[in-house]
Amino acid sequence: MGELATEKHVQYILSVEKRKDDFISVAMEYLRMNGAYWGLTTLDLLGKLDAIDVDEVVSWIMKCQHESGGFGGNIGHDPHILYTLSAVQVLALFDKLNVLDVEKVTNYIAGLQNEDGSFSGDEWGEVDTRFSYIAICCLSILHHLNKINVEKAVSYIVSCKNLDGGFGCTPGGESHAGQIFCCVGALAITGSLHHIDKDLLGWWLCERQVKAGGLNGRPEKLPDVCYSWWVLSSLIMIDRVHWISKEKLVKFILDCQDTENGGISDRPDDAVDVYHTYFGVAGLSLLEYPGLKAIDPAYALPVDVVNKIFFGR
């Protein structure tokens, strides 16, 4: 089995930002804030965050903030809760949460809660359990969970639970590992994991591991490195991670590396991207791969960052 090509991955992440000449990367500029979170968290897990100019990143992030308090995916783009979490997470990585007008950001998020406890992603009203997680995670990081009706938020999430134990986007939506991570994460942060039948959900989750060792996100799908994160973090939060083979999963992730130019892809021999590089490294961190910082399965931030937020050290 190969080893994690740490140096190569660092070089790859640092190079991605500079690419301005191909259509695919330019046309993705609307989610640059998510990209910043994926790339920078990866660097931190690899212990190389000091390669980044903090002031440059922080001032760019603050330029993405809208007067409503929410953040856009890039300068001049409309705010959305998806990018607001990424902005807060990146500031947390750099221990720079103090630059935020916390009241403003938390008012924006709290204002997106609906009567039934669900959350809209922005003023246009699309509802999704992803947004519930984001709201709860973000408010928790900023110590303002009291601004929303947590009880209703939890009961909405529970209403999205399916008979197979998994969760979907909205009530009746198909179970999907990404949505499950969001729902389990939100329930974990709010201390509501008792709403989950852990054996039932754990069973569904461990059935995501295919022969090759990788995890898929739904039945009959191919394995994909990003589900190493979604499935694994969920299994850890409900204490059922021993139901899958960790060794096989480590091997699968390492097989998805581009050992020449750095980066990790969704499956062996596919093209790499920052998104899968982050989820691959984060997955390995959850698997306690040597040399990586530990990551918190609910907040999706390095454990030392989370400790600093909640224990001030």
């Binding site: 046309a27 609307y30 995916g73 783009h77 409309d78």
Partner: peptide, 8 residues
């Protein structure tokens, strides 16, 4: 038509 998820 060129960038289908350009939310703005």
């Amino acid at each position: 038509l060129l960038s289908p998820d350009f939310g703005t």
